[in-house]
Design a binder for these strands. Structure first.
Lengths: 144, 144
DNA sequence: CAACGAAATCGTAGTATCCGAAACCGTGGG
DNA sequence: CCCACGGTTTCGGATACTACGATTTCGTTG
C-alpha cells in the first residue's frame, strides 16, 4: 500500500502546528525590516482593519491572555505604532488604536500576509479553502 | 446584513494562528498531569509512532531549529522519556528514541489529540477535512 | 590527506507567556 | 447613599521558548 503521499502524519493538530511554525518564520523573515516579533506582528495584523479594540478583545483575537498582551502593547506603544486611550462607555477598559505609523506598518503586514496566502492558495480549489476555514472554526470553537 | 457569522477575519493565516493558540491551551490543560510544556508535547507527539529520528528530522517535523530542540530534548531526557543514541550510518547524527515511559506519555498525548480532533470534526463533512489538509500542506510547502 | 560542509551542542540574549496581586471602575443590593 | 461583588488592566516575578554565533565531531570530496 503505497504510503508515500501520506507520510506519517494524519493528525490535523500536528499538521496545524507545523504549518503555523513554518508560516510564522517566513512572515517574520519577510517583515524583518519592521524589526518586530511574531506577537507584535500578530497584534498589528489584527488591528489592521483600523477598528479600535480593548485589550481583552485583542487578546481573544490573537489567542493570548490580556496579561500577555501588556508587554507586547508596551513595545508597540514605545515604537509609536499604537496608542492607548480611554474607552467611551467603560472607564475601566483601555482602547488600543493604530497611529499613522502603526497603520503603515499594519498595512505592510497585511499585504505580506495576503501575498503569502495568494502564493500558497493559488492552485487550490475554493472548496478546499472553505473546508480549511470550516475546520479551523470548529477547532477554535471546541477550544474556546 | 447579519455579519455575526463572518466577523472580520477572512485571513487564513490569522485564523490559523488563533486556532493554534486555542488548541494549544486546551491540550496543555488536558495534559496537565504530565507536567509538560507545549514544545515537549509537540516533540513527543511527533515521536509517538515509535520510529526513531534525528534531531534535524524532528526539528523539521515540529518546525523548530535544531538548536531550539536541544533544551527541549534535554528536559525529556532528564525525565526519562527519551534516549539519545548513536546513529547507525552517520556518527555525527544523534538518534532520538522513546523510552517505555516516554511511549506511555506519547500514547497519552496522542489519545488526547485524537479525542480533541474527534470532538471538533465530528459534524464536519470529510471534504472539509480534506481541504483543510490540502491548504495546510500548501502553506507548509510555500514556507519551506 | 587536506579542505569543506553537515550535525549537534553550548553559551548568551531577548521575548513570550502565565500566575498572583493590586488598582480602578461599573453594577446591583441594602 | 454606601457597600460589596465582578470585570478590566497593569505590575512583579518566574519559567521556558527561540534564535544566533562559536565549537566540536564527523562525513565527503578532491
Amino acid at each position: 500500500m503505497g504510503k508515500e503521499s501520506a507520510p506519517a502524519d494524519p493528525s490535523p493538530l500536528l499538521a496545524l502546528q507545523r504549518a503555523t511554525h513554518a508560516t510564522l518564520q517566513v512572515i517574520a523573515a519577510e517583515l524583518a525590516s519592521l524589526d518586530m516579533t511574531a506577537s507584535e506582528i500578530n497584534a498589528l495584523a489584527n488591528l489592521a482593519d483600523g477598528r479600535p479594540r480593548t485589550v481583552s478583545e485583542l487578546g481573544a483575537a490573537v489567542g493570548s491572555r490580556p496579561t500577555t498582551l501588556t508587554s507586547v502593547l508596551d513595545r508597540l506603544d514605545r515604537r509609536g505604532h499604537i496608542t492607548r486611550g480611554p474607552h467611551a462607555g467603560d472607564r475601566r477598559a483601555v482602547v488600543v488604536e493604530l497611529t499613522p505609523s502603526g497603520r503603515t506598518a499594519a498595512d505592510q503586514v497585511r499585504s505580506t500576509l495576503t501575498e503569502l496566502e495568494r502564493r500558497a492558495l493559488a492552485g487550490l480549489p475554493p472548496e478546499a479553502v472553505a473546508g480549511f476555514h470550516q475546520v479551523l472554526q470548529a477547532l477554535t470553537e471546541v477550544s474556546s
